[in-house]
Design a protein around this nucleic acid. Structure first.
Lengths: 66, 66
DNA sequence: TTAAAATGCAATATATATTTTGCATTATGT
DNA sequence: ACATAATGCAAAATATATATTGCATTTTAA
């Protein structure tokens, strides 16, 4: 399932996929695949993304995978 | 870092590690290692654990890995 | 409408989460 | 104190997240 909330939060901060990737220490492709719902990211990465985007786990990742 | 919140939530529900493991479809060892802070679980598994324990991601996993 | 940037996509390689099995240690109840 | 259940621990095997590279396609801005 696509993670539209994460994409919206990223765009709200005017960040490109590559900006977010650099901010959290992964590749641009990893960010793209998470937004596309094709990856099942690790908790640590989820938390790093949340902090980079000023959101919490519940705000970005809850109910993502029911 | 040990996930004491997860362990407390499990014990509140009077579940053994093996009970929780079966409820979320992983091994007892996986649950033990997550509680011991030696694993970096996947988002899907975190969500499954939350639902099994009646908690949210923020309640069990936030600030776990700063 | 073009050029450049951003994103999508796919194959292979690598790192690491998870499984499996077995045994040691600790907790729990009687 | 004893028996049993629950948990810890460790090695090898497997599954899967992530990296890397390269190119196709879409968006964006001039």
């Amino acid at each position: 399932m696509k993670n539209i909330k994460m994409k919206v939060a990223r765009i709200e901060r005017d960040m490109k996929q590559e900006d977010l990737a650099r901010a959290v220490g992964v590749t641009r492709q990893t960010i793209g695949l998470i937004e596309a719902g094709k990856y099942n990211p690790s908790l640590k990465l989820c938390i790093a993304i949340c902090k980079a985007l000023g959101k919490t786990l519940d705000e970005l990742f809850w109910e993502e995978t029911p």
